[in-house]
Design a protein around this nucleic acid. Structure first.
Length: 846
RNA sequence: GCCCGGGUGGCGGAAUGGCAGACGCUGAGGACUUAAAAUCCUCCGGGGAUUUUUCCUCAUGUGGGUUCGACUCCCACCCCGGGCACCA
């Protein structure tokens, strides 16, 4: 039994993780332990970790994510749930293409090699995936359903094509979604590359059709999703209620009117200018025939130039110029100048605002700079009266009353918003409107390694969808990849030339491919029915497994992936495929694994390779350490020294059970009898059941794996301190203790636990065993130590039987030397007694 | 600027109103060993008193507050990390 282990750490014990882990992985696979089928008779639990993009090396940062998911999956299995725990690959994407260009291989080769590597390492860690359900998004069997969904959306007007200004990354040579532009104008993949603006025709999905639902349904996620993720989504959707108001331009009948958007229509009498975005299409018209045209046009040209460069918007100085034109305030009839301002965004609202300097910070800054007048139209209810000339800060709160506002004087802002919006509607120059920051999702990519968008362009029939029967539009294998000059597919005549499905004439095939966020927006549905070739999935299977009970991933996906997934879910619901509104009931965002204070990454050269770890210590030690070193939601600083502690602990447990294995393996399972127990037995049984009670709650409700492990370590230390157990601890008691210890470790270090289980005399795998129930009777303390405070400071401790009353405790407390020293001769003015815990005597005087 | 997190020994962290520092790492000392490794045991926040046992005192970013009692709750501030950022 006591062979030398083969790890590189030099520890001696019979524990050989390499052997143990290989042995049990084989047994699990043979017994098909982790394969699950929908079974309405059993309660289900769907636990999912975000699917990885298979590139680079799997490091301990990845493993932490999967370990957390695996612990949850294993605990739920032990709890009797029918658990779905799948894994797959986010296999399309730019890095494959870039790597292929660099290494002169095919993206598919590169990707599949990576997948094989990832799969091997994940298997090496013993994660309890149902590998039969594995999916890879770059396979036609998968992406044909991307195309199918796209066509469904096209049919319903949810997919459309439009020319638009797009974010163009010169390094990627492709369009980026707004969400992929980071740090105020840089590519999310190339953080040193500034994104440019280009106008290009491309495909969009109408996420804005679901703006309200995407916002409102966040309420259903409260409690299940981290608050900050909900908040980030809320901000991203950016709902804003206000009004659009039509403003006539004076003395320019050819220009007509312009429209502004405001959330504070109540302040409209305070508007001292109208300001247009530089990109506003009306600006050139206003300048035509304007007295200031000559000086204004160069300014406009310059401003339009800079706005394209996406200069640091936040810190940019407010600039503007007068157009020489005036607008008529529809409420007051007042003539106010029309300006152009660089801080007004064409993409938001109507691209035009009214400037109310007294009640908006940006307007105040702008008007002060250009000496435009300030007029107060809301006076605060409390405090000093506002004087326009003296205002340094705007008054933008709602607790005031209207002044200088004609018939609306005296109203509160909120009343005025309602009344004035109504008035504008009646007069026909405005209406209440809600606008969103959320935009439609641009999915066109001018790249090769993605899902082809299934449409053709016919000179006669226009845009024609590829019929269902012709799906998938297969990505050709022999594209030339150079990384330059746009889409590789466009350079392939054999791909581009197509027949129009309608008229049979010559047509041109779409060469854009889809954003990879499409792939990951619904992959978790496919896991329920991964080999279906008639539909993306069988709705009945999805109805059983969904929603995802626990989704686990990084905070980096808090907006993009999760928002798109939620959108996709709602579209599928409206297609009649599913009935639920939200894909994931609970979301957990785990912390990063860092080394040297920064996240592990290949480019920083600070990765701790997963396989390396498995070879040196074994997967179980690696798993245990990532769970032990920090609570799962917090970042974890990797320490080569600390992991030794986890390794030592597992060896310690192994030796303990190895030592008692012979004595207990023959013992029939019989619960230890509390009444007949010796003092030593009672103490140990109490400890083990107390530990079980707390570990159970740490697993179930709190996910405090680190403190659960600490408790199990403590238990192990206590058992060691009672050695030799042969003296005073019967084999059946030893067996119960060691079994519970093993079962508690099982979700975290599953291979070792199986081995120990076998050593304890079980011929059937631990996987067949449920989570143990703790014995309340055995866990109960019969003697407790009560802390005695005098005026809030600890002065002594007394031992009493559990449940002892205040009087008894007080008597003992006063007899305690330390307590007596501080309390004698003083009047006790108050006694606070917490049964089994504390007695605080508040004494008078100092 | 706004919105979230977070700040506890040499280090990772524990304690969600009741003994601050569980558990682990590092370090020191000891046992075993020819020796080393491994293992096992003891100690390990600061200051002070005490020969010892032990006792007092300060201490959870800073300053206030609530409370018999605060790492924990409230107010203000400082620092670190993250997200959003002229959104009208």
């Amino acid at each position: 039994m006591a062979e030398q282990n083969t790890t590189g750490t030099g520890a001696t014990s019979g524990y050989d993780p390499q052997k143990v882990e290989a042995k049990w992985q084989k047994r699990w696979a043979e017994a098909r332990v982790f394969e699950s089928e929908s079974d309405p008779a059993k309660p289900k639990y769907y636990v999912l970790e975000m699917l990885p993009y298979p590139s680079g090396t799997l490091h301990m940062g990845h493993m932490r994510n999967y370990t957390i998911g695996d612990v949850v999956a294993r605990v739920k299995r032990m709890r009797g749930f029918n658990v779905l725990h799948p894994m797959g690959w986010d296999a399309f994407g730019l890095p494959a293409e870039n790597a292929a260009i660099k290494n002169k291989t095919h993206p598919r080769t590169w990707t599949n090699n990576n997948i094989a590597e990832f799969r091997r390492v994940l298997r090496r860690f013993g994660f309890s995936y149902d590998w039969r359900r594995e999916i890879s998004t770059c396979e036609p069997e998968y992406y044909r359903w991307n195309q199918w969904f796209f066509l469904c959306m096209l049919e319903r007007g949810l997919a459309y094509r439009k020319k638009s200004l797009v974010n163009w990354c010169p390094k990627c040579c492709t369009v980026l979604a707004n969400e992929q532009v980071v740090n105020g104008g840089f590519c999310w993949r190339h953080e040193d590359t500034r994104v440019e603006s280009r106008e290009i025709e491309q495909w969009f999905l109408k996420t804005t059709a679901y703006s309200d639902q995407l916002l409102d349904d966040l309420k259903q996620l409260e409690g299940g999703w981290p608050e900050r993720v909900i908040l980030m989504q809320k901000n991203w959707i950016g709902k804003s209620q206000g009004a659009k108001v039509k403003v006539e331009v004076a003395d320019a009948p050819s220009v007509g009117s312009l429209e502004i958007f405001t959330t504070r229509i109540d302040t409209i009498y305070g508007a001292t200018a109208m300001i247009l975005a530089p990109a506003h299409p009306l600006v050139p018209k206003l300048l035509e025939g304007s007295p200031v045209r000559a000086e204004a046009e160069p300014k406009l040209a310059k401003m339009r130039q800079t706005s394209i460069k996406t200069e640091d918007l936040a810190t940019m100085e407010k600039e503007g110029f007068f157009t020489g034109r005036y607008a008529l305030n529809p409420f007051s009839g007042e003539k106010v100048p029309i300006w152009v301002g660089n801080f007004v965004l064409m993409e938001y609202g109507t691209g035009a605002i009214m400037a109310v300097p007294a009640h908006d910070g940006r307007d105040l800054e702008f008007c002060r700079k250009y000496k435009l007048p300030v007029r107060v139209v809301i006076q605060p209810l409390e405090g000093e009266e506002l004087v326009p000339e003296k205002m340094e800060k705007p008054f933008d709160e709602h607790n005031g009353k209207l002044v200088n506002s004609g018939p609306f004087n005296g109203l509160s802002p909120d009343e005025a918003i309602a009344k004035m919006t109504e008035f504008a509607e009646q007069k026909g120059f405005g209406r209440g409107e809600t606008i969103f920051r959320l935009k439609d999702w641009g999915i066109s990519r001018q790249r090769y390694w993605g899902t082809p968008i299934p449409v053709v362009y016919c000179s006669k029939d226009g845009i024609v969808p590829v019929p269902d029967s012709q799906l998938p539009v297969v990505l050709p294998e022999n594209a030339k990849l150079t990384g330059e000059g746009g889409s590789p597919l466009a350079a392939m005549p054999e791909f581009v030339s197509a027949k129009c499905p309608k008229c049979g004439g010559a047509a041109r095939r779409e060469t854009d491919t889809m954003d990879t966020f499409v792939d990951s927006s619904w992959y978790f549905y496919r896991y329920c029915d991964p080999h279906n070739d008639k539909a993306p999935y069988d709705s009945a299977k999805v109805a059983y497994w969904f929603p995802i009970d626990q989704y686990i991933g990084g905070i980096t996906h808090a907006i993009l992936h999760l928002l798109y997934s939620r959108f996709w879910c709602k579209v599928m619901r409206d297609l009649g495929l599913i009935k639920h509104n939200e894909p994931a009931a609970r979301l957990f965002t785990q912390g990063m694994v860092q080394k040297g204070g920064v996240a592990m990454s290949k480019s920083r050269g600070n990765v701790v390779g997963a396989e390396e770890m498995a070879q040196k210590y074994g997967a179980d030690t690696g798993r245990l350490y990532t769970l032990f070193a920090a609570p799962p939601e917090k970042d974890l600083e990797w320490s080569e020294e600390s992991i030794e502690g986890s390794w030592r602990f597992l060896n310690r447990v192994y030796r303990l059970i190895e030592r008692h294995s012979n004595a207990v393996r023959g013992v029939k399972d019989g619960k230890a009898d509390a009444a007949a127990a010796s003092v030593k037995e009672k103490m140990l049984l109490r400890k083990v059941h107390q530990t079980l009670r707390r570990v159970t709650s740490d697993f179930e409700t709190r996910w405090h794996f680190n403190s659960a492990i600490a408790l199990i370590m403590e238990l192990t230390n206590d058992i060691y301190s009672q050695e030799p157990l042969e003296q005073g601890v019967r084999p059946e008691v030893r067996k119960e203790m060691l079994e519970l210890l093993t079962l508690m470790l099982a979700p975290m270090t599953p291979h070792l636990a199986e081995e120990l289980w076998e050593m304890l005399g079980h011929s059937e795998g631990l996987w067949k065993t449920g989570w143990p129930a703790f014995n309340q009777e055995l866990a109960r303390e019969d003697e407790v130590e009560i802390v005695v405070q005098v005026s809030g400071r600890v002065r002594g401790r007394v031992k009493v039987s559990a449940g002892a009353g205040e009087e008894e405790v007080l008597k003992l407390a006063l007899a305690d030397a330390g307590v007596a020293h501080h309390a004698d001769g003083k009047r006790i003015v108050k006694k606070i007694f917490v049964p089994d815990k504390l007695l605080n005597l508040v004494v008078a005087g100092s």
